[in-house]
């Protein structure tokens, strides 16, 4: 069927729909740049979702655990080999995503007889010295966005991924007016949990034109945290050793 272009496009479209369906239940992940570092927050239901990749790189992922594991291992391998062969300063999230992960994801997605990666990834990198921090969303088809949200052109101090686009948009709208790179760690954590809750509500709320009010957020948050576990990590700006990753 690949000999016929139309059917190839159709197959790819079917594949997209199938993957979207598979990812739809994914618990949102919020990344925030704050004064103390780069924070990542989610609520997990039994399975870990936030990981250390290298000294200054962390990963949050939703999707199939087997696929997440393969991508996580690839990222760790690429970063570790580079860090050993050259130096830890030469490990770059942008290069890793653009030269290693993105092409591999695209190939797997478009080879319609093979299995695609059922995963959506959010990488964060703490900038060296005065370089800006990097927030990178990498999708199952290899497409990636750096420091961007759907709302404006200016770089935002946050990035989110979620099972549904509407949920991600709700979180972005919520964070657009509230997030600031000057927040302290505890304020940023509080804001990230609220944003996560907004995303969680939007997952089950089909129309979702308005953001939920504070009461609805508090109720949902209490309910979800009684069932799942809050998972939060930070890449600390003032870490004492080389490795900046820490669980909160």
């Amino acid at each position: 069927m690949t000999e016929e272009p139309y059917r190839w496009v159709e197959a790819i479209q079917n594949r997209r729909e199938y993957i979207h369906e598979q990812l739809a239940a994914g618990s949102p992940i919020v990344a925030l740049i704050c004064a103390d570092g780069v924070l990542m927050v989610t609520v997990s239901y039994g399975q870990k979702k936030l990981f250390e990749i290298y000294d200054r790189i962390a990963l949050g992922a939703i999707g199939h655990p087997g696929d997440i594991e393969r991508l996580r291992m690839s990222a760790i391998e690429v970063a570790s080999a580079e860090g050993f062969n050259r130096s830890a300063c030469d490990v770059s999230l942008r290069r890793m995503a653009a030269y290693s992960l993105s092409p591999a994801l695209k190939t797997a997605f478009e080879q319609i007889y093979g299995s695609p990666f059922l995963a959506r990834l959010l990488f964060v990198e703490l900038g060296h010295h005065d370089e800006p921090d990097l927030l990178l969303q990498l999708d199952y088809d290899g497409a990636f966005k750096v420091n961007s949200s759907a709302i404006g052109d200016r770089p935002e101090p946050f990035a989110v991924i979620s099972g549904r686009e509407s949920s991600a948009h709700a979180m972005e709208r919520f964070l657009h007016d509230r997030a600031s790179a000057d927040l302290g760690q505890s304020e940023a954590l509080e804001l990230a949990v609220e944003a996560w809750t907004v995303g969680k509500i939007a997952l089950s709320d089909e129309d979702g034109a308005d953001l939920p009010d504070a009461e609805a957020i508090a109720a949902c948050r209490k309910d979800e945290l009684s069932r799942g576990a809050l998972e939060a990590v930070i890449l600390e700006r003032k870490a004492s050793g080389n490795s900046t990753f820490r669980h909160l």
């Binding site: 990981f51 990749i53 290298y54 291992m73 760790i76 050993f84 490795s243």
Partner: peptide, 16 residues
């Protein structure tokens, strides 16, 4: 020493 350091880190990151 470098190899050892990186081996421990790699183990921690990959095996959690």
């Amino acid at each position: 020493a470098r190899m050892l350091e990186h081996t421990f880190q790699f183990y921690r990151r990959s095996q959690l």
